[in-house]
Design a protein around this nucleic acid. Structure first.
Length: 470
RNA sequence: GGCCCGUUCGUCUAGUGGUUAGGACUCAGGGUUUUCAUCUCUGCAACAGGAGUUCGAUUCUCCUACGGGCUACCA
């Protein structure tokens, strides 16, 4: 049974790298008829952000990644929030202490402050840390009841540990280089290492798929599994998502929160598709993948081991592709949510515009000419606007007043009639566009006029002609 | 500094002991279109370096360089 988890800490928002991690876990679970678990890692009490969990869940829901178990779902191996599992960690820690695999470390706060302030080299600090390592176990446990302490893992001072990673193969670590890691902090909360190992085991996680930044902690985790005499899960450490300068993708250098991209008007399909290809690729040249296709094609052994720069330009291209193929009504619903103006937009407007935008936000300015009009002042010497063009526009305005509805064919017939009647030779398209939309560029003008309707067009033409002294 | 991970066009990537090293984005230039865009065509552009193994290495091994991650009572 495949059981995987996504285990974010609730520090405010869903990171784009987190989205990819969640996605890969989801794909793997779905593909293998397994389960995806959401676990909240909130053991750092100093970094709690209000509403972060709700925000995380709603963003994940937006993306289409569904969980089988989690704080918002029913599950048998919960609770799925680490702060609600304290007794479990304490119980296991006590076991570790009794077995001699961990020990409490009692030093006064002043000593800690001193170490911090004086920048004592870390190897000296480590030396000092071991003072309590071989204290009598019963005595240690007794003192824990009354004294401030942390609990440290007793890391063997020699030997090596070798762990297999599904993406990178065998990785070896020299144990003598690893400090006696703190597993319970002085506030009684576990550190990540302890909590994640216990939870992964108790929640029966079969594959740990997480970011590469955890590789350095792998030996500590593996050691914990050994101490508990638990079987190791499979590990797959995903390559990092990078800034333009190849450093770990961070807030400093652009948007990293999924909600930023939602607000900018990206479709979930585009974000998911783009992010899926950052570190993974099928064996062919296919690039457009639906979620269903991803579930079908995804495989851990095709994940790359090198980092990937997050390139917004390519994401925009994906977004464009998905907008173009999205149906008008669905787009309308999405656009309505993002619109800052109270415009009554129609499906036909969206249909007309959807080839010319890169994100949903762009619709707002493309839509503007439908709702906002101010006539443009034309220079006397503008060659586009000859007297015969003005006459043409006047005649067009008159025709429009007599019409109530109009198709594109009606419109074309109308202008052809006027053209021949007035013997207009010049280019009518550009002047018409400028007169009616007030813009130089825009979507197909025939369709624009048809959607706007003859009445409004006539009104705008009159305003334009009047404004230019005709 | 130490440990660990990595290195194919600017970017995302495919790929193989013998290929004209493929695709996509970007960029440049054509074409289509009543404008912009879409669409389409063409072009630019890569195996980090050095040894070794081999008849032959981008591909296998080692070294170097470079990049990154970790080195917290953060995750």
């Amino acid at each position: 049974m495949v059981r995987v988890r996504f285990a974010p800490s609730p520090t405010g928002y869903l990171h784009i790298g987190g989205l990819r991690t969640a996605l890969y876990n989801y794909l793997y679970a779905k593909q293998n008829n397994g389960k995806l678990i959401l676990r909240i890692e909130d053991t750092d009490r100093t970094r709690l952000v209000g509403g972060a969990v709700e925000n995380l869940i709603s963003t994940l829901e937006w993306s289409g990644i569904e969980f089988d178990e989690g704080p918002h779902k029913i599950g048998e191996l919960g609770p799925y929030t680490q702060s609600e599992r304290l007794s479990i960690y304490h119980q296991h820690t006590l076991e570790l202490i009794k077995n001699g695999n961990a020990y409490p470390c009692f030093y006064p706060q002043e000593r800690l402050d001193m170490i911090k302030q004086k920048h004592i080299p870390s190897d000296i600090v480590a030396e000092y840390d071991r003072r309590f390592r071989d204290l009598n176990i019963t005595e240690s446990i007794d003192r824990m009841a009354n004294e401030n302490h942390v609990v440290r893992l007793k890391v063997p001072s020699k030997g090596a540990i070798s762990i297999y990673d599904d993406i990178r193969g065998k990785i070896e670590f020299d144990l003598s280089l690893i400090q006696d890691q703190i597993i319970i902090k002085s506030d009684g909360y576990p550190t990540y290492h302890l909590a994640s190992v216990i939870d992964d085991h108790l929640m029966q996680i079969s594959h740990v798929i997480r970011g590469e930044e955890w590789i350095a902690s792998l030996p500590k985790h593996a050691l914990l599994y050994q101490c508990f005499d638990w079987e190791l899960p499979n590990f797959a450490h995903l390559p990092l998502l990078l800034n333009q300068d190849k450093s770990k993708l961070s807030k400093r250098q652009g948007d990293v929160a999924v909600e930023d991209y939602i607000n900018k008007g990206f479709l979930k399909e585009a974000l998911i598709n783009y992010v899926s290809l950052l570190g993974w690729h099928g064996s062919d040249n296919k690039e457009i993948y639906s979620m269903a296709e991803l579930i079908d094609c995804f495989s851990i052994n095709r994940i790359k081991s090198s980092g990937a720069i997050f390139d917004v330009k390519k994401l925009l291209w994906f977004n464009q592709q998905y907008i173009k193929t999205c149906d008008d009504l669905s787009l309308k619903i999405l656009i309505d949510k993002l619109l800052t103006q109270k415009w009554e937009i129609s499906s036909s407007m969206i249909n007309l515009l959807k080839d010319s935008v890169e994100n949903l936000k762009d619709f707002e300015k493309e839509l503007e000419p439908f709702f906002v009009f101010s006539p443009i002042k034309i220079d006397i010497d503008n060659k586009l606007f000859s007297q015969e063009i003005y006459s043409f526009l006047m005649a067009l305005s008159d025709c429009f007043t007599e019409m109530t509805v109009m198709t594109v064919d009606d419109f074309k017939l109308t202008i052809n009639n006027i053209k021949s009647e007035y013997n207009v030779l010049g280019n009518i398209w550009k002047p018409m566009r400028i007169a009616i939309t007030g813009k130089e560029h825009g979507p197909d003008i025939s369709q624009f006029i048809t959607i706007l309707g003859p009445k409004e067009c006539s009104e705008r033409l009159k305003q334009f002609l009047h404004f230019n002294g005709q």
